[in-house]
Amino acid sequence: MKYLVTGATGAFGGLALDKLNTLVPVSDIHILARSEEKAAPLAEAGYTVHIGDYLDKASLKAAFTGIDRLLLVSSAPGTRQEEHQNAIDVAKEAGVSFITYTSFARADQSSADLATDHRYTEQAIKASGIPFTILRNNWYLENELPLVGAALNSGKLLYTAENGKAGWALRREYAEAAAIVLAGEKTFPEILELSGKPVDYATLTKALAEATGKEIAPLETNDEAFVKNLTDNQLPEPVAGFFLAIQGDIKNGVLDVQSDDFEKVLGKPLTPLVDAFKELLQ
């Protein structure tokens, strides 16, 4: 059995490899990377490296030929639909027998702009006829680090999401789940909603305060103050605007997903938020 992980030099792909190599022989693991330089440490570790990207179908064909099970890690927004369609088309041509894909919470019905490309990709995978498991990832706790950094400076965690909730968990836990599904030791449903227990920002702030031993209070604010808080802490304004949009999604319940799929895949409880913050901030 041959396995291939795309985006292997990225944060998610690297964490998935860390777990995958405990489940299957390293000699059976292939990776797709854009840069030989970035992939060099992985080649030295025994992985079979293929250089290419989603917009170069010839490079995908060379990488996917002989692969049985593919972890398709979503690319960055921009030309994502074209990139993912290329990967799916080539996977079908190459005879890949299984795809697992990193999607977005309730992508088939979500109102979030972020869900659009994922919804397209899910439909393309289904249309390909290749057996699959879609990983509808909720939200990485790491995504909140700019808010956390600002809160550690000021003693207040600013948010605009009102009572909205998200199913935060560590990126490595999402990556571990992806590796477990890719390894194929167990059969999983076609759709997995991977979400921690949904909590609001007041609860998240309480966990942060406990983890750091600092007095940090949640502070619901307006859009202008939210963005200013982030830009004052060295975040570029366009990025701060993206974070504001996510606040709107959380306010609208986009990431409020009740599911035990995550713990079922991992076979263990998720890391409690207090411990997760300690891990990230150590």
Rank of each mutant, 00 (worst) to 15 (best):
T271P: 11
K268D: 02
K206N: 04
G149L: 07
P146A: 04
E263K: 12
D68N: 14
K214H: 06
Y174P: 00
T203K: 09
F98N: 09
D113W: 15
N233T: 03
E82N: 11
E93Y: 11
K19C: 02
Y159C: 04
T102M: 12
S195H: 06
L281H: 05
A178V: 01
T271Y: 14
E176Q: 13
E173C: 00
Y54H: 12
N86A: 14
K228W: 02
I180H: 14
I250W: 05
L235H: 09
T203V: 04
Q109M: 12
L157R: 07
R80Q: 15
L71T: 00
P131C: 09
D223L: 06
Q81H: 11
N138H: 08
T79N: 14
A276Y: 11
S111A: 15
K2D: 00
D260E: 15
F188Y: 15
E185G: 11
K264M: 08
D200H: 07
I216T: 00
P189Y: 03
P77Y: 09
T6A: 04
A16G: 04
V49Y: 06
A43T: 05
Q282E: 07
I29P: 03
E122K: 07
L280W: 10
L194G: 03
N163E: 11
A175R: 01
V265C: 09
L158H: 09
S154I: 06
V257C: 01
L70V: 03
A207F: 05
V254A: 15
T48Q: 12
G7Q: 02
A105G: 14
I180D: 08
L182F: 04
S154N: 06
G196H: 06
S74G: 13
R171H: 08
L72V: 05
K156Q: 15
L17F: 05
V5L: 11
L4E: 01
G248Y: 03
P218Y: 09
I125D: 04
K214A: 08
I51K: 00
A8W: 03
A127I: 09
N222V: 05
L42E: 01
F104Y: 15
K57F: 04
S59T: 13
K38F: 02
E224L: 14
E144I: 09
K264W: 08
L194I: 03
K251N: 06
E93L: 10
K2H: 07
L157E: 06
A240W: 04
L152N: 03
D117W: 08
E279R: 08
L158F: 10
A58Q: 13
V257K: 05
L32K: 08
V24E: 13
I246E: 07
Y3E: 03
F64S: 07
F12E: 05
F132D: 01
G66S: 15
G167I: 00
Q123F: 08
V73D: 05
S259A: 11
E190V: 01
T9E: 03
E190A: 06
D68I: 13
Q282R: 09
L141M: 14
V227Q: 07
Y3C: 03
R34C: 02
S111W: 14
L60S: 10
D113N: 14
A45Q: 13
A166T: 11
E220F: 12
T48E: 08
L70C: 05
Q123K: 13
A175M: 04
I250Q: 09
L266S: 02
A33F: 02
L255M: 15
A178Q: 03
G253V: 07
Q247A: 10
A178M: 07
R171D: 12
F262A: 04
L219Y: 11
G66E: 14
G164Q: 05
N21K: 15
G52I: 02
T116V: 14
